[in-house]
Design a protein around this nucleic acid. Sequence first.
RNA 1: GCGGAGGUUGCCGAGCCUGGCCAAAGGCGGCAGACUCAAGAUCUGCUCCCACAGGGGUUCGCCGGUUCAAAUCCGGCCCUCCGCACCA
Length: 905
Amino acid sequence: MPYDFGRIESKWLQRWEADKIFQPTETGKKYLLTVPYPYANGALHIGHGRTYTIGDIMARYLRMKGYNVLYPMGFHISGTPILGFAKKIEKGDKATIDLYKSYLELYGDNPDLIKEFSKPENIANYFANKIISDFSNMGFSIDWSRVFNTGEPIYNKFIEWQFRKLHSMGLIKQGDYPILYSIAEGNPVGEDDIADGDVDKVSILEFVTVLFQFEDKYLGASTLRPETLEGVTNLFINPNGMYTIIELDGRKIVVSKEAAEKLQYQRQIEIVGNIDPKELIGKIAKEPLHGRSIPIIGAEFVDTDNATGIVYSVPAHSLQDYLALRESGDNIEPIQIIEGVNESVEDVIEKFKISSIGETEKIEEATKYLYEMEFYHGIISKGKYSGKFIREVKDEIKNDYIKDKIAFIFYETSRKAVTREGDKVIVAIINNQWFIDYSNEQWKNKVRNLLNEMQLKPDSLRNQFMQVVDWIRERPCARKRGLGTRLPMDRNWVIESLSDSTIYPALYTIIRELREMDFNEIDDAIFDFIFFGKGELKGKSNDTIELAKRARKEFEFWYPVDWRHTGYPHISNHLTFYLFNHVAIFPEEDWPKGVSTGGIVLSEGQKMAKSKGNVVPLLTVKRKYGADLFRLYFATNADVWYDVDWRSSEVNMMQKKLEKFYEYLTNAIKYEGEPEERDLWIVGKFNERLKHADEAFGDMRIREAAVELFYNMMNDVQELESIAGKDRTMRAIKKFGRDWALSLSPIIPFISEEINELYGGSGYASLSSYPSYNESHKQILEEWEYVEGLLEDFKNIIKIYPNKPGKMRIYVAEDWKREAFKKFNELGMKEFMKSATPEQREFILTITKRKDAKNLRLNVNEIMVLERYKEDLENYLKLKIEILKTGEDDKSKKSLPGKPAILLE
RNA sequence: GCGGAGGUUGCCGAGCCUGGCCAAAGGCGGCAGACUCAAGAUCUGCUCCCACAGGGGUUCGCCGGUUCAAAUCCGGCCCUCCGCACCA
């Protein structure tokens, strides 16, 4: 019977679905296992597939171990991406249209359906449906009766309830917040909206703009190093630039024209007029600390499109300033204000071999070098902060300047950036931005306590989480656009897509009851009742009350989440929010029990990326290889927490192995008759491997379990076949074939069902008990392993034997050696030596030097075992065998108990 | 910078927690053989060096240490990769 995965997989899919076998009811030991829902904006690839496969393998394993496992799934549609794609399709953007047409083609749908995709909800619905079929095809044991998406009204009500709760607990705040922004679009922009945003990240820099008095105005000079203000010697301004006078907080300030535009998005300013830089150059300004007179010097290197387009110059501590002054010939004496650093600006210029100000790259590198040195080791030697380390007072200095109104903050992008449409990206301050206040220390402490109680895999996860909890601050939780749930406190805002997906596993438990409820009756009181058992449902209809009670029961039964698994990039965001929000909203008994993170998937050795053309869609994999093969590949190729590489050549190798496995099991059943007793070591071997694999599964070491049960077991069977021949092997396989298939059911569920049925198993393999360890063949296994040792020795010798041997003499060690060795093991060296004969002493001294001494099998009746396998070995090795007791022969004297001497001739 | 992971024999990649059965699983690649008219596929064996009757030597990023014994434990150093937020 050839391995036809298409036939087998669709057969079992239909049966599973017809019998709804993955829709658990509230009985027995429950286990709620979740994986974050996918974002429904495109076809899934094998990277997504791996995470859900790991979840499913664990779900299936635990189900077979007697747990009542619920593995639910929903869809994420919140945020801007789907909206953005819909908009682009509406606008006729070619790249986006081609991409979505390719998805339609992939799924075998008419590419003309693309028109539908100008509506975001159509994109979401289309892909949600495709993902359901993709996931089902992969054999995931998901309860689809509980599916929902984050855009539907019931979900919105649930999230609104959550946010009103957070708000009432004082965990939601408002404040001003800098953000990347496109003037042309009038909107905030994320990494995805920026050209090359993924490869060259844009961050927000905080410049301190210091005000230097000039006549009735001020010049706003920007710096990233406000601690050097004491050392200022002059100002630089671009003679070819355009400058504007603005009014801010009642003062007239000169900045570049570009800066003035940006500032309109950051502060309340008014444009007063323009000013020609020539009117400034050569004149004098006053620095704000002591009112020293400072010359204004023209310098073309000043970029008017970076910060305010005016910089102050500290030649003693800035390479660029030093070089500029040296080249302009202005005779200005640097003012040293930092000590404790061994190298001066001149030294660094020397060190990096910089000859002119044009060498931008070298200067950048050297500046970083100098800055890090001064920041970590430098001590301020002038002014108010004298004697203090820069790293300790830098922030204080900045804040003092702002307080004293001699400086303000100017936000700038870390590099020049444009959107994918080519519009300039700047930094804007959003007023009254809503935040979730993750900086709250009491809240953090609760999360820390939870982390100490939780099960986490891999072990390093606990440290990583603790670290994140330490540095996490307020997080903006709403945006002005996007799909999702409107913020109940202010309906102009939409809850941001990571913030609306933290406690939703709770919704899986009750969604079915909510759907039956009269939608208008669903309100906060209903959620309070279901989740906390609080309050009475006054004024609700009887049906609603009844459903709410049922929902309460479901929730109490299934919650908390026993395990959540996802990829490691989620540690610092989603998983952390998941913990924080559970801790805030739910009572302690409903807090998460365990979390694990997994590695990512590489394709042919590289990160998957559309630009590299190595993205492998889940669907094509399923069509080409079948779900079982896909699952087996990921199970065996790397442990959960490591990255895994998808290489088609290796997948092909694995396919052959899997076919062979299937062939063994389907063939074996056709063989009549009982197996030979002497071949049953294979059953012992299976049980040993099963025991080991069971332990590994329990600890989520899926790879170890899979390798043991699949690879190693296949090798054992092939070993048996090469010695016992096909017929005997097949009859032996029948003895444990069904258990073998069942033991692999979490990984290859379809083949498992097929084999289980073939072997007359009743019911579904997926719902069977996991096979249990049985030690009835332990003795024969040990005896066989003794023979394996002999074969090993034979191989070593045959390698160096000049021609083909016709005969092998096997000398079994004399009994006195066995006795001596046993005695030695019992008594230990010291005691043994006291009572031993000289002959015994010499023997023990020589063999204890051998490193394999501990390995000897002493409990085997060697002659009996050798006689049993003599014929098999003769056929296998193609020579005659003679079994003898050790005599006087030199070679034969090498025999040890459990390790006979061999003589070839 | 902060935090995490890791550097193993031609390549990929186990082992390391719980030192000795470790010249170190498995796969790829390579070599030889079987099969074949031939190629491919498949199967078998070999694949650090030297011995050529089961022996010896040198290896697991580098340098030291602990130990009878270190790829494994400890200390220091060098190098690589990943995450660091308003983005799903």
